[in-house]
């Protein structure tokens, strides 16, 4: 069971939250000028790292506010909680994306 630190309500059990997947996905500026494959990439392709994942969460059964998490997808350790729209905190490295490093949970 994860416990997540909601920026507004404090630490709560994971059951109160909903994960909405990868964060920081930018909608293309001029969709009409995109090729189909660029559009498909925006819609469907995901980083899906075995490592630190930046993701959107919502405190659905609490304050209903959205926020970002940096969370390790093997250990589930939460490395940072930061507001929507904010940049990734500096101490977070997602360099492990796609690498095969074995992480012991």
């Amino acid at each position: 069971m994860m416990q997540i630190e909601c920026p507004w309500c404090g630490k709560r059990d994971e059951e109160e939250f909903t994960c909405a997947g990868q964060s920081h996905i930018q909608r293309p500026q001029n969709p009409r000028q995109n090729s189909d494959s660029e559009w498909a990439s925006y819609l469907f392709e995901r980083s899906n790292p075995k490592g630190v994942h930046l993701e959107r969460w919502r405190h659905t059964f609490g304050c209903r506010q959205w926020f970002n998490l940096a969370r390790h997808t093997v250990s589930h350790e939460i490395l940072a909680v930061y507001p929507m729209g904010a940049a990734v905190p500096e101490h977070i490295s997602t360099a492990g994306d796609g690498a095969v490093e074995e992480v012991v949970a």
Binding site: G21, A40, S41, F44, E45, R46, S47, N48, P49, K50, T73, D97, G98, A99, V100
Partner: peptide, 16 residues
Amino acid sequence: SSTVAAMAGLKLPIVS
């Protein structure tokens, strides 16, 4: 799938 495909530079529409 995503981590192994990434070794060949591919990004997949997959979430694990």
